[in-house]
Nucleic acid binder design. Structure first.
Lengths: 143, 143
DNA sequence: TTACGAATTGAAGCCAACTTGAGGTCAAGC
DNA sequence: GCTTGACCTCAAGTTGGCTTCAATTCGTAA
């Protein structure tokens, strides 16, 4: 059972066959044979698909991903770019944290309007500052 | 200087006027008057836009965001839903952290092919398991 | 008062990443 | 040998989040 046909890959990877065909079309993966009309894949493709899925979850475009782990799974992207991406992820994690805190606050805050709640305003303000770092910030202490 | 017209909002928030019109069209923000043809906004809209920007940076769709902080910037969602969101964010943060670590590893790993690096394989494997447990991450490339 | 620039509208366009549909092919099981 | 159903191709459609465009309307400065 050396090769997997597309249906099996689809089932095992949880990726629709149409998406697999699309990935092949754009050169992200490749099938190695046909059985009749059916594409046959090497089992390796499952790992590639895991990578692709990871990359997507991290916010990379398919183009980026194919630059990182090309058709043969070897990385093309310079290390620096990868570090940049990782740093961007750090930033993104901070955003998520701020949003989470804001959300929790919003859920619990007794103030009639959030616009009037200093805690809320502070959270939003901080988030805003992070996003446009480098821009001069004028914060009035609200609490 | 009670109301801001669209150009001023655009400048202050750093959001193109076309996007503001779009946001109004889909009910995410609203203008309160016109001066001639020009939309006039209450200054509050700047805060709403900060929230929207936060949500976007955190990977939420405009639909999600409008469910969180409706048209007037006041949350529409029941408290429980907000807490659920917050918890989901917590899991998402963990996942992003793992992805970041993987990426950093990829950038630094000396192995000729990632497929041959045990550390890498373990990370991918873990990520895959996490995702399969039902964690959905939908993030887009940041602006 | 006239020109200018900033805004208006609605429709169309754009990109990524797929999905859907119609019509065709084929390997395997009965 | 025929049916079945999984697959094929190619084109067109979809979604989200805008942008761009042409034609038009204003408010303001000169």
């Amino acid at each position: 059972m050396r090769l997997l046909d597309i249906g099996e890959v689809s089932r095992q990877a949880g990726v629709p066959a149409s998406a697999l065909r699309y990935y092949e079309e754009i050169g992200l993966i490749s099938s190695v044979a046909r059985r009749g009309l059916r594409r046959q894949f090497e089992p390796d493709v499952l790992l590639q698909l895991a990578l692709i899925s990871m990359g997507k979850a991290a916010g990379f475009s398919l183009g980026d991903i194919s630059a990182m782990f090309g058709r043969d799974g070897k990385p093309d992207l310079p290390r620096k770019d990868m570090h940049d991406r990782a740093n961007e992820l750090d930033r993104q994690i901070l955003e998520l944290t701020a949003l989470r805190d804001t959300l929790r606050h919003v859920a619990d805050c007794p103030a009639p309007s959030h616009m009037e709640c200093p805690t809320f305003m502070r959270l939003v303000d901080l988030a805003g500052k992070r996003r446009r770092k480098g821009i001069k910030v004028r914060l009035k202490t609200l609490d």
